[in-house]
Design a protein around this nucleic acid. Structure first.
Length: 457
RNA sequence: GCGGCCGUAGCUCAGUUGGUUAGAGCACCUGGUUGUGGUCCAGGGGGUCGGGGGUUCGAGUCCCCUCGGUCGCCCCA
């Protein structure tokens, strides 16, 4: 709690923005990763991984030199090469795809879970080291591919217990949006500025937003639409959006062209009530070319839970063949906050059960004679594939020992007695009696009798 | 990079207008309740009051600096 540099005798502490994962925290993290992994697997995504640091250039190529101040970058003592801890996965993914593109069957459906690093000031929902799940489809330009990644994202949320009451998926489409702008006389060199403005719209008063929009010399028909977007963005019922589509022919036309994506989502089982269209979702300025989307909690209080979109020319940028691509990322920090806020984070017991981490059997000996075969018994149970734990206490107080067993979450308690006899109690049955076992001819035989009575978890 | 708030045991906190060896609950450890599930009883370990400097006879209490946490701004891949 004192010196960050750790002089002799001083306390060390974890670096700013990083976390220590004690067993409880680690179990929660594993639980979350388990939800991600299971969802991705069900949806047919293969898991991949890459280095946690890359050449610094990999990031400046895509994001410009300005990105460097946001990275943890370094070079070896005396070395010339600059590296950076990875702040995101997409460049690594693009690199991996680019170098094997022609050998890979299409579509490429990959996902990845791992740590990422950003040299920013920590704040709510944002740390310097975090875990992120990336899901991508490459080689398929269709709206169906967009829908596939969004559906995978939605399914992971459902697996965590989140419904359309808790979260919404807000979708937009840069390509279609640009089309509409062009058709209404906004030259393409001004589109970027429009995106920037829409991105900031959430933070501006309606009047300020409209004033800024006028400066961009946008036609009145667009102004009507954008003004309506500001209002609709704070409306969770969707009524204002319906009204907007009636009043503005442009909004109507735009949302009509998004219909194929909406239809695909519905086919894939994504609740229509969870999907919102919004021209205000822009996703920074980076590399998105088509559909973009973000997941937000319905209260709108937290940062985006997940975000992604289509990036059709990124693989080419990294030296590969032209490859259409779409994907998203979800970090562990915001989703954990949302689950906590909504009371959906399972109890520690439930997590242990869910992950199969609870002991199958908790063993103790009732006296010194039984102590003699406690350890061989553990060995046999473990060899038989059971998760077996023992007490390390010296007390023979069975009240305390059962209390300890209970706290460990063990399904059964095995009490060893002299003469290779034992009692086995099912902790799931409140107040139930113990079943007597033995005497047997050997520890192994007694262990086999125990194993026979413990069903696979 | 900038700003607000905060910093006493592992956790949540109490510590009177600055005044003797800094407290409680929970958690942890030990023993007892001769015992089959978070009971009860007794005991114990653990804090240089984030760190440094200053004011003072005397500082957890006041002042300055610093480190850290937290929330926000910028940014958000």
């Amino acid at each position: 709690m004192t010196s960050p540099s750790g002089q002799p005798g001083r306390n060390f502490q974890a670096p700013r923005g990083t976390r220590d994962f004690y067993p409880i925290e680690m179990a929660r993290r594993l639980w979350l990763e388990d939800k991600w992994r299971r969802t991705a697997t069900r949806h047919g995504f293969d898991e991949i991984s890459g280095p946690t640091f890359e050449h610094l250039d990999l990031y400046t190529v895509k994001s410009g030199e300005g990105i460097v101040s946001e990275l943890f970058s370094f070079s070896r003592q005396g070395g010339e090469t600059s590296y950076a801890l990875r702040p995101e996965f997409t460049p690594t993914l693009a690199r991996m795809v680019a170098s094997k593109a022609n050998a890979l069957p299409k579509p490429i459906k990959w996902h990845s879970i791992g740590p990422y690093f950003r040299a920013e000031r920590p704040q709510r929902g944002r740390l310097r080291e975090f875990t992120q799940w990336n899901v991508d489809v490459l080689g398929d330009p269709s709206p169906e591919a967009d829908a596939e990644v969004i559906a995978c994202c939605a399914d992971s949320l459902r697996l965590m217990g989140l419904t359309d009451e808790h979260v919404s998926i807000r979708i937009n489409h840069r390509g279609l949006f640009s089309e509409i702008l062009r058709e209404n006389g906004v030259p393409s060199d001004r589109h970027e500025a429009v995106f920037v403005l829409l991105d900031q719209a959430g933070k501006l008063e309606r009047a300020d937003f409209l004033a800024a929009a006028r400066k961009l010399d946008l036609p009145e028909s667009l102004m009507l639409w954008f003004g309506g977007e500001i209002e609709a963005s704070v409306d969770s019922s969707g009524e204002l959006r319906q009204k907007l589509m009636k009043e503005s022919s442009l909004a109507f036309e735009y949302f009509r062209r998004l219909e194929p994506l909406r239809d695909s989502l519905e086919e894939l089982g994504v609740s229509k009530r969870m999907v919102l269209q919004s021209a205000l979702i822009v996703r920074g300025l980076a590399y998105y070319t088509g559909a973009v989307f973000e997941v937000h909690e319905t209260g709108g209080k937290e940062r985006a839970i997940a975000g992604g979109g289509r990036y059709d020319n990124l693989v080419e940028l990294f030296g590969g063949p032209p490859t259409p691509a779409v994907g998203f990322a979800m970090g562990d920090v915001v989703i954990a906050l949302v689950l906590q806020d909504k009371g959906l984070m399972p109890s520690d017991d439930a997590i242990a059960r869910d992950l199969g981490l609870a002991p199958d059997v908790f063993v103790f000996a009732c006296d010194e004679a039984a102590d003699l075969y406690l350890r061989p018994m553990l060995a046999h149970l473990r060899r038989a594939g059971l998760h077996a734990r023992r007490t390390y206490k010296t007390t023979r107080n069975e009240g305390k020992l059962f209390g300890e067993a209970n706290k460990s979450g063990a399904r059964f308690v095995l009490k060893l007695m002299p003469g290779l006899e034992a009692q086995l109690k099912d902790m799931g049955a409140q107040g139930g009696a113990s079943e007597p076992l033995g005497p047997e001819a050997s520890v192994e035989a007694l262990a086999a009798a125990v194993q026979k009575r413990i069903p696979a978890s």
